[in-house]
Amino acid sequence: MKTTRVIDLVPHIVLIAGVLIFAYPIYVTLIGSTWDSGTIGRGGLPLWPGGQGAANYAQAWAGEAGDRAMYTPVRTMMLNSLVMALSIALGKIAISILSAYAVAFFRFPLRMAFFWLIFITLMLPVEVRIIPTYKVVADLGLINTYAGLAIPLIASATATLLFRQFFLTIPDELLEAAKIDGAGPVRFLIDVVLPLSRTNIAALFVILFIYGWNQYLWPLLVTSSGDMETIVTGITKMIGTGESANDWHIIMATTVLAMLPPVAVVVLMQRWFVKGLVDSEK
């Protein structure tokens, strides 16, 4: 009796400790966003909420000048980040579904060659090919555009591979039944393959949206005007280097706001994801 209680207790303690370690910085951020910059600047941030929350968030959102500098308004940065993250997530899904569909369902010359070409790109991280990519995007005149932000990040070998593996599990008879029913390749894709891939799409969307939202290096390179600033690069630019003092209250409010869309996507899509799993139609 006693031992089982101890055994029950240990994982809980570990778990709670883990949660505290992970959650504490976020809690500090949340608290920090409700105090004025003086309090934070002195290094004496209390662990309870202050009274400045509404003002800080309004200031960050509207982008009125901080005490020490001018910032791009959070609403602009959020919009830019949202456009970029959605374009990347949806673009990646669309492109990889189409390429996986081609590789999985069609027989054409050099099919496996194409498959391996896609596969090989997995081995080159974005950073390695960033200079040629920048050159191409610059030559196309896409600097400081949404297209320039999103398109270079859209191709995805990982998603293509995942979809290909899933498509290979769709029985041949289903394809043949559809052929006899009169469905061409496009109809089969829309009417059968896509509905069956719903849960995969939902799961990938969550991962890819967060991947897109958190992009740092590429947006930093490809945007130069404040109008095109994304929130992740924006936050880092708010933090001055060296001796300059920072508007920590606004930075923290901005950080909290920056967390909301990914959290919303996870929470909303998780429900969807679980629903898809429970239906278990495949």
């Binding site: 008879e173 043949e176 006899i180």
Partner: peptide, 16 residues
């Protein structure tokens, strides 16, 4: 197949 005016029943049913 669609133009042959036939219908087929498969071993594993092949229902959508």
């Amino acid at each position: 197949p669609k133009d042959r005016d036939i219908a087929m029943v498969f071993q594993n049913y092949a229902l959508y």
